[in-house]
Design a binder for these strands. Structure first.
Lengths: 188, 188
DNA sequence: TCCGTTGATGTCATTACGTGACATCATTAT
DNA sequence: ATAATGATGTCACGTAATGACATCAACGGA
């Protein structure tokens, strides 16, 4: 038994999401989050670089999983096919996570510009990681960047659909449909 | 002759860019910007919603121009062709603007995560505007979102190339090359 | 068993962003 | 001549974020 309650980071995360849902992101002070978690604001900032990050740290895992999948894709696969493999891996990630939680989180993020900004830069970081990995596969610029960006475009559209109300299909199913549409659009 | 020096907004903008270049974005306080412009910090926040916005307000003009071009594209044009017309309009915008200034601004933005975030949300806002305009043209979802996102992907890649060192081609030329590459990639 | 180290947390002080409320005063309109 | 307008300043405040230092249970040797 430690000197403190264990799992401070998760307590902070839980407290934050609760409060964001109850009274909104802007109205929630870091001090209030920390208090609900039985800690102080100073400690909050030891776990999270800033107030927004409490909703986003963990994205490195998704990124790593997608980079791994991209690396392991068949050497003969085209750039877009390799990206598709990475998107499929993201699907496993999301369908494992419970969709109701993702919906709540998305709602909180959508309601606040600062949080939207943070989400966007996470996606950009992901795109850059995918670009680097494609280049390691021998894909030249600007193809690597374009394929990665197009993949993220599909990701964004599919994710928005996946969390939307009354959507029942799994993430992978939506991704595949979106990819097919993109191929068609580009060909027209 | 007015009570105050005229053109406070531009004075603030100029002072901000100077200081960002001289000592960096984070090291520059709003008070310092205002002082250099002969004003107070309170006045700065009357012109710009926050410190970052001083580098971005004006993006509405670009967005409006692209939306107009998209609206005016031939009714028979495909979604991607209509998007291409909007991108061409953006080209006029950028080649009119002086590229050296754009390069400095890009450098400042690239050096700071907060500014990158703001840039990303501006692009997303633009993407959403393009999506709405495509829908008015009769394009259904998810095609409208995908075409808009793909267009923004091309925009991002082309813009990065346009401001990169020793790039001589005009924006439109780069956009067209990128669009062609994307079509090829999607087809593979 | 004692003691020094470690590590998670707390306390305190400080800077800067951002905003509301109210004051100032040259310009403009009536 | 006077009142309304509008750009700016002043002041006070809350909150985010960070550095410096203090605390103190747990742990690992000697």
């Amino acid at each position: 038994m430690g000197r403190w309650e264990p799992d401070a980071e998760n307590r902070l995360r839980a407290a934050a999401i609760e409060l964001f849902g109850e009274i909104g992101y802007e109205q929630t002070t870091v001090a209030a989050i920390a208090e609900r978690a039985g800690l102080t604001a100073r400690t909050f900032f030891r776990y999270f670089a800033d107030k927004r990050e409490v909703l986003f740290n963990g994205s490195e895992h998704l990124q790593q999983a997608m980079v791994d999948a991209l690396t392991k894709a068949p050497a003969k696969a085209s750039a877009m096919d390799a990206i598709a493999a990475a998107l499929a891996k993201a699907g496993d990630f999301f369908d494992a996570d419970r969709r109701p939680f993702a919906r709540l989180r998305s709602k909180v993020i959508a309601a606040n510009p600062d949080l939207r900004e943070r989400e966007l830069i996470k996606l950009t970081t992901l795109s850059e990681a995918l670009t680097r990995t494609l280049r390691k596969r021998g894909v030249e610029e600007p193809d690597a960047s374009l394929a990665a960006e197009a993949g993220i475009a599909v990701f964004r559209v599919a994710f928005a659909q996946w969390v939307s109300k009354s959507e029942r299909r799994g993430f992978n199913e939506i991704v595949n449909a979106s990819l097919a549409r993109l191929r068609t659009l580009a060909a027209e």
